[in-house]
Design a binder for these strands. Structure first.
Length: 281
DNA sequence: TACATTTGACCCCT
DNA sequence: AGGGGTCAAATGTA
């Protein structure tokens, strides 16, 4: 389900995204589980904990990159400059598959985005939404992303990331990873609410198209992805049958072989275990 | 009250 | 001239 390609940066993004989603899915599943089914809820809790450990382990493989200080904020209204800036920016394109037309939980990439526009695109069936980093003004972060539903496949979203995050999200994320999940507060609740319990399976197709550079490696966020305008709503069907699949290849993201082996082990064991256990419930 | 979203308008590029 | 990207005022929400 996950195809890793390109440089280490792309792998970091996708790994971060996948792990964050797995964790949120586990919590969402737990929340939706019948309270009487203690074993099932325990299982979900254990799954979330396991994914948390995976995240920390992965974080130790990919320390947050050092960013240069934010550029001086002499933004102004020079659109020409902005367009030139976009052209020279790091650009990463991904395709994200959701489980239902209404499910956009899988679009959550764990970063803080603020929607600043939406446009109907010529020849496109669905509008394109524009997001910028929440910390654009406070920290001069110029990262933006564009989200558009694919014409032929309503379950497929094209997500284009432009520019690197130069804000402090990486640091915030690192701190959040060390904190127990219960203390992550609003963010955890939000992520839980975002992610759907799987129906016939939660599939996110991620196709990275490295173009110039990669976005930073982050696991958590503090703000809504801004995808709740009806066209992007967070409602999704619930189903107790949950199936995960993964083909993480740590080698392709250039991690240390020892970490790679540990991570692969942990992940595949966890997934196999929960697949069979959930199936038996 | 602060922050996020919506949406019409503006501007640059092709 | 039209399309795409962004701005910013108005509005919504917690």
């Amino acid at each position: 389900m996950v195809e890793l390609c390109g440089g280490e940066g792309e792998g970091q993004i996708m790994l971060a995204t996948e792990l964050a989603q797995l964790r949120a899915m586990a919590r969402e599943l737990e929340a939706k589980m019948d309270p009487d089914r203690v074993a099932a809820r325990e299982l979900c809790r254990a799954l979330a904990s396991s994914v948390d450990r995976s995240i920390r382990l992965a974080a130790s493989c990919f320390p947050p990159p050092e960013h240069p200080p934010p550029a001086a904020g002499n933004a102004g209204r020079d659109a020409a400059f902005k367009k030139r800036q976009v052209m020279g920016m790091a650009k990463v394109r991904r395709q994200v598959r959701v489980t239902s037309v209404q499910d956009t939980a899988s679009l959550d990439d764990g970063l803080s985005w603020r929607k600043y526009g939406q446009k109907d695109i010529l020849g496109a069936k669905y509008p394109r939404a524009y997001f910028r980093c929440t910390h654009r003004h406070t920290q001069g972060c110029n990262a933006t992303k564009q989200v558009q539903r694919a014409d032929g496949d309503p379950l497929l979203f094209d997500v284009v990331y432009l520019g690197d995050h130069t804000c402090g999200q990486a640091a915030v994320a690192a701190v959040a990873q060390r904190a127990p999940p219960e203390h992550a507060g609003q963010e955890q609740q939000r992520q839980s609410s975002l992610l759907a319990a799987g129906t016939e399976g939660i599939h996110q197709q991620v196709v990275a198209e490295p173009m110039e550079a990669a976005a930073p490696f982050l696991f958590t966020s503090t703000a809504a992805g801004g995808v709740d305008d009806g066209y992007f709503s967070f409602i999704s069907p619930a189903n107790s049958d949950c199936q995960f699949s993964s083909d993480f290849s740590a080698g392709s993201v250039g991690v240390d072989m020892d970490h790679e082996a540990r991570f692969e082990d942990l992940f595949s064991n966890t997934l196999e275990f929960f697949q069979s256990e959930i199936h038996n419930l």
